[in-house]
Structure formats: structure tokens, C-alpha cells
Design a protein around this nucleic acid. Structure first.
Length: 825
RNA sequence: GCGAAAGUGGCGGAAUUGGUAGACGCGCAAGAUUCAGGAUCUUGUGGUCGCAAGGCCGUGGGGGUUCGAGUCCCCCCUUUCGCACCA
């Protein structure tokens, strides 16, 4: 039986109205004061909306509407992270141009947002694939090139044979390509980099100021930056009349260095093995190690492999000659690519020493027993006392001891303190078509020549062939490649590498603020008024990559004096994934098309409506946690909305006067307080629960005629207002039917009255020795004496006090009284 | 191995500051309505003993602090996530 709630008609009506109400572009320069910017930058891959069921968009819209009703000037812009691999792969697989494919997906997604009733400010819409946007990527690149923050170098890179492109370390997951899952191999290529390592220290220090970020994300970024303090120590190689420098965090164990290990790629490796009898075998081995994908090489299961160079270095601390080895477990790009091996005090070095029969020498000795270096199976890491290493004998393992060694090494001229980071420079080159062209040309006479600003943008040609053959389609476009040198006008070739799409997303928050500005990247005046972004909502998958790059670029722009903010995002919220049972895999996993466990938003909206989907998505659980989608539980949200709808029809049944008005009024104020507080802390699930309770109370009051018409109507109106951020369509419709002409969004958020929350008589919980025994009704204002009288009069309490005296009574006003007893004398 | 978060009914989950554990919803049960199904409405629903009144037990396990602990402290177990040859 229909109860009159036709969600399809209601939603269509309001979605049309909101679309028509879309005003002309709002000029942000005219606003003064403090504003709120909420943000997302979805990737229009065509699959994205199913993932997590648009949870972040629904959350963002609820927050936006809540802020608006609270009189906050809030901006909810939407743009498209439009470049990227899926579009190009689609072109190859389906013969659609990446641009057409992307624009079609954007259209689909916009339609989806409309059907969810999400209010984006489309006048701020941007898409990174348009020259109006990406020319500023190019402009930024040129400024960074001028400052030495962009540079080109030969580098071993992660190469995905299937996508035929280079991948950043971050895009390699367990040795496989992030996008397609193909095993990644190593190659040496000339690549463009951004010098993010120059900002390592500031990016690390800046994390401490980000109070509005989840601790988890900050920890992940700290680990990624990987700061470690130690020292560089030089070891002489008499045979080569050279020295090799190592980095160590434990300079205090230098006396225990019994051999040295270099990465096979180390620049000195070739000279060290020049006269080795098995030179050819070692060279072949080096080549093998070099070609092992980095991820596989640094996996723990990979066995340690090494070769003795036959050469020796001198341990400066002991004067002893120690052998120099090459081994796969030493990575060329960390530290100096060379380590002093101290097997007695490092687990990896000990394992390698045992494997290869290399000597072990103790620096730190245990006090309670003697350790035989030849037989020890576990390295002594953080205990013991130094012996046989004058002048340090008797010192214990401590930061102070390490500092004394560093001072000593510096004094002797053998080394100095040094801070090293795990963070590498950001490899931005992609050998793909669908991205921002890197704005440089190659001239035989002048080498690398930047494209002058007045020739920007370097536009991506539309007519290229997508064959799937090796190499970048751009490099086969003569029209694009062949150009003139800006300096000598002679023939030159354009760079055909394009930029990583993370460049696009590292500054888009600034472009939102002046999206049509044709003369500059963004308007600094507006940017300084709106930045930093007040609330960023996104998935945890961006914890490192996107969020680190965006912080880096924001700082670069700050250093260019273009924006005051150093940190782009003041508050960050990571919504949890929505999971669902998958028949395909036979377990619960992340919702996605490929896993075949999605709920189609279209079908759900068709059947129950967008408001139901919104309310359920918010009610399913705490938004920061993962949640499992339940098809049955959705009906709970639907039933709730139907009840709210029916309530309007039943309001006329209420009497002009009734006895329990005060009780309903109290509920109304309590709900205002609860919902407001819940929304302020992103606890949408409890906000919905509070509204369900209020609707239940009101339903009961109407049913039993215990509240007056006026009181019920007022409560109902409040219910609609509080529910609006979660279920915008149905609430607007009912609000209009209540006879109001102004939109709910324009009403101001209800405020609760502290006085209305108070009760005259309260139910006080009575405990005897901490156990709940009874509830008594007392005056809210009753003092301890009055409460005690009332409590002692209770038969149940009397029973439990039989044979005992009250030794002490603890009164928590308005809540409970606890009678502590002892045996009667 | 290191780091972080979390363990509450059949299920998803509530419980600002230590103060009535299980709000709200799903599911389930009984009843009402209905030709029937669905929908809707009412009541009940942590375990256990009891005809009942009521008692006892109960927030992963063990200990502690407190008048009072899901919440605070110590130890242990489990799960999830992140990092992992980084010298």
C-alpha cells in the first residue's frame, strides 16, 4: 500500500529546481572574512562512483548543507583529475580517444552527482585535461626548472611492460604496477624529477602543526620521509688511492666494522674488480642484480647475495685492513650506496658474515656474560658496554655516546655527522600521451631549452595514433615533435614525456578559487583569503602520494611568494571504505565493478530513492571506519523516511491542547543538541539515530494525542531542518507542504535552549555498593538530604540495606546516588 | 620484526568528562490488519536461574586503581591497517 511518498517524483522535482537555481559565477573576490572550502577531485575513470558508494561525496554534501544552514560561507567546488592511464588504456582497448572517453565519463559522473542531490558550485568546475588548466602545470614546471627544483637525470626506473611507462616507487605495489598488476622491471632512462628531497625537513616538521589530520596519515608520511641521523665515515682504499664514504646510524660501532659492502651499482665497483680473476662472472652478476626490480630486490625473502672484490679498505678506527664486498642488499640510492658492516651489532651484517664466513668483532660487550664473536647468533643491538675501543671504553649505548664518536671522527678528519632521508626525488616523467606535455625542446646547438612563457601552453595534439605499440604515441606525432629552437630558431625536437597526474592534483585547490583567470595560475589575493582548505575529505589511499606532493607544491608556491599558506589542508578526513559480500571471491571486500559486488546507485535510487541511499550511507557506521553494506539494512533508512512522510499527514489529528507538551519540547531541544554535536564531529550515524528517536517520540505523541497541535508542528519542523543535510529532497518537499516558501537551506540551524532541557522531577538511579537497585523520582533541585530521605524510603533499598549501615553516600546530581554500606555494629 | 588502530548481543553499531551497558537500525518471535503476498502497526528480544517477584553473570582474557570501570593503569591474546634488507 502506498503511503504517498513517491520518492522518484520528489527527487526529480527538487533536482530540477536546484539545477535551475544555479546562479551565475560567484566572484570570490567580493567576499570578506573567513570561509570554508570543502574539496574532492575525483578521477573520472568511469568506475569510481561505485567504489565506496560515493560515501565521501554524500558526506561532503551533508557537511556543506550543515555549514550553510549555520550561516557559514562555504564553497563546495568540483573538478576533474582528468589525465591519466585508464583513459589511454581505454583508447587502446576500445579505440576511443582518451579525451572523448574522459569527457563522456565526466558527463556520467555529473549526472550521478545530480541524482544524489549534491550541491556543487559548478561555476568553479575545472578539468586538468584542458589547456586552460595544464598550461599552469607547464608554467610551474618552468619556474621550478629556473630554481633547480626540476631537473633531468639518467635513472634506474620502474618500468611497467604492460602500461609501457615508468612508475614512481609509490605506484609499485608489491613488485607490480598499481594500475594493471603486471610485474615491474628495472630500466635506465633519462627522466625528469622534482627535487622534493630539498623539502624533506620542512615537510617533516610541518606535520607537527597539522592538528586536524589523522595521526595515522602523519605517521605514514613520517615513515615515508624516513629521516635518520648518523654520520658519514670515509674508509681509505690504498689500492685505488681513493676513499669510499659510508653512511651509518651507528658510528659508535665503527671499531666493529670487519668488512665493507657496496651496492653492485656503486661507481667504484668496476675499478675494484678490474683485476679480479673472476671479473666476467662478477660483471654478469652485477648486471643481474641491476635488472632485478627494486621491489623484489628489497623484499625480505630475497636471499642475500654477494661477491668479494678482493680489494681492501682501511678501518680508520682500528687501522685494520678489511675486505670490500658487493651485495644485493645494499641499495645504491640510499645514503652513499655503501655500508660499513658491523656484524656484531647489526642483524643483516651478521647474517651476511655468517653466510660468507666473514669475521665478527665486538664493540659492545654484555656485562652479565661473555659473548663469543665467532659463535654469536644474534647481534647485540642496544645494550652492553664498550671495550677495547679507546678512548671510549666503559661507555654505554646511548645518543650521547654516538655524539662523542661523531665529534671524534670530525676531529680526526675521518667523517662528520649527517642526516639522511628515505624520501627520493619525485619522478614526474611519463612516457604516455594523456598528460601535460613537459614544456622543453631539444636543440642540437643549445641542448635543453625551456619553452618561453609566451608560447604556453604547449598543447597536446588531438590527432595521434593509439596502437598499443611500445613507446609514447606523442613521439610519433611529427606535428608535435618537430619544432623550432626558441633561441636560434633552428630545427628542434619537443620533449614527448608528459607529467605525472599527481602534478595536476598538487595545486588544484588554488585553481578552484580563480578557475577562469587566463593571466595567472591563480589569484593570490583570493587564495590568501580562502587558503588553507578547511576540510578535505578523501580516501586513505592518498595518505602518502597525493597529500605529500600537494604539501610540497604548496610550499614551493609559498617560496615563490604566490601564496601565504605553507600547508594546503588544515583538516583532513579519511572516510572508510564500504565493503560488500562478493560471490566471485567468496568473501567481503571493497566494492568495485571488477569484483562484481557493487550496488548500482541507479537501481538503488530507482527503488528506494537518493535520500534513502544518503541516509543509509551515513547511518551505516562511523564514517572513518570501514563498513559492510547490507541490502536488508537499507530498508531501515527507507522506512524511517516513509514515517517522516506519513507524520505530515497525521499532524492534523493532534488536539489543540494536551498534557505532555513539555516532554516533547524537551525531546526537541535534546535532539537539536545531539544532532548539532554529532554533525560537528562527523558522527553522522549518531545524528541519524537521534532523528529516528525524535520521529518515534513525535509519532507516539501524535498516536496517543499527548501533545498539542502547535507543539507537534514545531517539533516536526525542527525534525525537517535537522534532517535536511542528510535527506535534502524529502525534507524540502515536506517543508514546502508545511507551507513555507523559503528553502530549508536558507533557514538557520535550530538552536537548543539549555533551560528547556531541564526536568522538574527526575529519575535518580540508586545503587547500593555499586549495584543498581532502584530508581526513585525526586525534585531535580533536591539536595543530598532530601535525596537521601527519598532513597531510604524505597522498599527495595530497605531490603538491600537489611543488617547494614550506610557508611557513605556518593551523590552525582541529576544522575545517581551510591550507598556504600558496612555491616551493622 | 617495527609502528598505529581496534576487540561491546544473532548482525551494523550507541554510550561528551569514569556514573542506568546495549541507544538507533537490521534480523528474529508473537499479535493486529489483509483474500493472499508485500507493506504497515503493536509488543518482545544480552545470557542464565525462576511460575513470578526477583537474583546472578555480562563490553577479548587476567590483574589493579576507585564508592563506582566498556571508559583509567599493568600484563597477555586476537584482528585489521601501514612500514619493512633504509645501513
Amino acid at each position: 500500500m502506498s503511503n504517498g511518498y513517491d520518492h522518484k517524483a520528489v527527487e526529480a522535482k527538487w533536482q530540477d529546481r536546484w539545477e535551475r537555481q544555479r546562479t551565475a559565477e560567484v566572484d570570490l573576490r567580493h567576499f570578506r572574512g573567513k570561509y570554508y572550502m570543502l574539496m574532492m577531485f575525483p578521477y573520472p575513470s568511469g568506475d569510481r562512483l561505485h567504489v565506496g558508494h560515493g560515501r565521501n561525496y554524500i558526506l561532503g554534501d551533508a557537511l556543506f548543507r550543515f555549514l550553510r544552514m549555520n550561516g557559514k560561507r562555504a564553497l563546495n567546488p568540483m573538478g576533474w583529475d582528468a589525465f591519466g592511464l585508464p583513459a589511454e588504456n581505454a583508447a587502446i582497448q576500445r579505440g576511443v580517444h582518451p579525451r572523448d572517453w574522459t569527457l563522456a565519463n565526466i558527463k556520467v559522473m555529473k549526472e550521478q552527482f545530480r541524482r544524489w542531490g549534491i550541491l556543487y558550485d559548478w561555476s568553479k568546475e575545472i578539468a586538468s585535461c584542458f589547456p586552460e588548466y595544464y598550461r599552469w602545470n607547464q608554467w610551474l614546471f618552468l619556474r621550478m626548472l629556473e630554481k633547480g627544483l626540476a631537473y633531468k637525470k639518467m635513472a634506474p626506473v620502474n618500468w611497467c611492460p604492460s602500461c609501457r611507462t615508468v612508475l614512481a616507487n609509490e605506484q609499485v605495489i608489491e613488485g607490480a604496477c598499481e594500475r594493471c598488476g603486471t610485474a615491474v622491471v628495472q630500466r635506465d632512462l633519462e627522466q625528469w624529477f622534482f627535487r622534493i628531497t630539498d623539502y624533506a625537513e620542512r615537510l617533516l616538521a610541518g606535520l607537527d602543526e597539522l592538528e586536524g589530520w589523522p595521526e595515522k596519515v602523519k605517521v605514514m608520511q613520517r615513515n615515508w620521509i624516513g629521516r635518520s641521523e648518523g654520520a658519514e665515515i670515509r674508509f681509505a682504499i690504498p689500492a685505488l688511492k681513493e676513499a669510499v664514504t659510508v653512511f651509518t646510524t651507528r658510528p659508535d660501532t665503527v671499531h666493529g666494522a670487519t668488512f665493507m659492502v657496496l651496492a653492485p651499482e656503486h661507481p667504484l665497483a668496476a675499478r675494484l674488480i678490474a683485476k679480479h680473476p673472476q671479473k666476467a662472472e662478477i660483471e654478469a652478476w652485477i648486471e643481474k642484480v641491476r635488472n632485478t626490480p627494486r621491489i623484489q630486490r628489497s623484499a625480505e625473502e630475497t636471499p642475500k647475495e654477494g661477491r668479494d672484490t678482493g680489494a681492501a679498505a682501511v678501518n680508520p678506527a682500528t687501522g685494520e685492513k678489511i675486505p670490500i664486498w658487493l651485495a644485493n642488499y645494499v641499495l645504491p640510492e640510499y645514503g652513499t650506496g655503501a655500508v660499513m658492516a658491523v656484524p656484531a651489532h647489526d642483524a643483516r651484517d651478521l647474517a651476511f658474515a655468517r653466510q660468507e664466513g666473514l669475521p665478527v668483532r665486538l664493540v659492545y660487550h654484555l656485562e652479565d656474560r661473555d659473548v663469543d664473536p665467532a659463535a654469536m647468533t644474534e647481534a647485540i643491538l642496544h645494550e652492553g658496554v664498550i671495550r677495547n675501543a679507546p678512548p671510549f671504553d666503559g661507555l654505554r649505548d646511548s645518543p650521547e655516546t654516538i655524539q662523542r664518536f661523531i665529534d671524534w671522527l670530525a676531529e680526526k678528519g675521518w667523517g662528520q655527522g649527517k642526516v639522511t632521508y628515505r624520501l627520493r626525488d619525485w619522478l614526474i616523467s611519463r612516457q604516455r600521451y594523456w598528460g601535460t606535455p613537459i614544456p622543453v625542446v631539444y636543440c642540437d646547438k643549445h641542448g635543453i631549452v625551456p619553452v618561453p612563457d609566451d608560447q604556453l601552453p604547449v598543447e597536446l595534439p588531438y590527432d595521434v595514433e593509439f596502437t598499443g605499440r611500445e613507446g609514447n604515441p606523442l613521439s610519433r606525432s611529427k606535428e608535435f615533435v618537430e619544432t623550432k629552437c626558441p633561441k636560434c630558431k633552428g630545427p628542434a625536437r619537443r620533449e614527448t614525456d608528459t607529467m605525472d597526474t599527481f602534478v595536476d592534483s598538487s595545486w588544484y585547490y588554488l585553481r578552484y578559487l580563480s578557475p577562469r583567470d587566463a593571466n595567472r595560475m591563480f589569484d593570490p589575493e583570493v587564495a590568501n583569503r580562502w587558503m588553507p582548505v578547511d576540510q578535505y575529505i578523501g580516501g586513505i589511499e592518498h595518505a602518502i602520494l597525493h597529500l605529500l606532493y600537494a604539501r610540497f607544491i604548496c610550499r614551493v608556491l609559498h617560496d615563490f611568494r604566490l601564496v601565504e599558506a605553507e600547508e594546503p589542508f588544515q583538516n583532513l578526513f579519511n572516510q572508510g571504505m564500504i565493503t560488500r559480500w562478493s560471490d566471485k571471491s567468496g568473501r567481503v571486500e571493497k566494492m568495485s565493478k571488477s569484483r562484481g559486488n557493487t550496488v548500482s546507485p541507479d537501481e538503488l535510487i530507482e527503488e528506494m530513492g537518493a535520500d534513502t541511499e544518503r541516509v543509509y550511507t551515513l547511518f551505516i557506521g562511523p564514517p572513518e571506519k570501514e563498513a559492510e553494506w547490507s541490502d536488508e539494512a537499507v530498508t531501515g533508512a527507507h522506512r524511517f523516511l516513509q514515517r517522516v512522510w506519513r507524520l505530515l499527514e497525521r499532524l492534523p489529528e493532534t488536539p489543540p491542547t494536551a498534557p505532555a507538551d513539555a516532554e516533547l519540547e524537551r525531546d526537541r531541544h535534546a535532539t537539536i543538541q545531539r544532532v548539532t554535536h554529532s554533525l560537528q564531529r562527523f558522527s553522522f550515524n549518531t545524528a541519524v539515530a537521534a532523528l529516528m528517536e525524535l520521529s518515534n517520540s513525535l509519532y507516539r505523541a501524535v498516536e496517543e494525542k499527548t501533545a498539542s497541535r502547535l507543539r507537534c508542528e514545531e517539533t516536526y519542523d525542527t525534525l525537517l531542518q535537522l534532517l535536511h543535510p542528510m535527506a535534502p529532497h524529502i525534507t524540502e518537499e515536506l517543508w514546502e507542504r508545511r507551507g513555507y516558501t523559503e528553502s530549508l537551506l536558507e533557514t538557520s540551524w535550530p538552536e537548543h535552549d539549555e533551560k528547556k532541557l531541564r526536568r522538574e522531577r527526575i529519575h535518580l538511579v540508586v545503587q547500593v555498593d555499586g549495584k543498581l537497585r532502584d530508581r526513585v523520582e525526586v525534585d531535580a533541585a533536591a539536595d543530598e538530604k532530601q535525596v537521601r530521605e527519598a532513597v531510604l524510603a524505597s522498599p527495595k533499598v530497605k531490603e538491600h540495606l537489611a543488617g547494614r549501615d550506610v557508611a557513605k553516600a556518593v551523590l552525582v546530581p541529576g544522575r545517581l546516588i551510591n550507598l556504600v554500606t558496612r555491616k551493622s555494629a
